[in-house]
Amino acid sequence: MAHGTHEHHIIPLKTYWTVFAALIFLTVVTVAAAQIDFGALNALVAFGIASVKASLVLGIFMHLKYDNMMNRVIIGSGVFFLLLFWFFSIIDIVTRIPQNSTL
């Protein structure tokens, strides 16, 4: 069995604070972007910014950037199978013969 070193990687304080600043900045950007109409891209913009924030949290706060490959694979497969779930459900919804909704 392969083991990592006994010294765990310690991320410097400055990095944590920088990431926090970036996250706050991106939150402001999210709110600001919501005031602008990008048309069909609205959801994509909001989701894109959220994903940048998420990867900062995952990479630095959750130490994934310095972690072993397996933990990245685990979280990646969670996201992948979620997308799969979404994908196959939505292709059913969008390819159904349109019904006249009473709503």
Partner: peptide
């Protein structure tokens, strides 16, 4: 196993394409 669940739903109102 994760790609095939819709075969339980062929006659349940799922779209033909799916």
């Amino acid at each position: 196993s994760f790609f095939v669940w819709g075969h339980h739903m062929f006659v349940s109102g799922q779209s033909e394409f799916a």
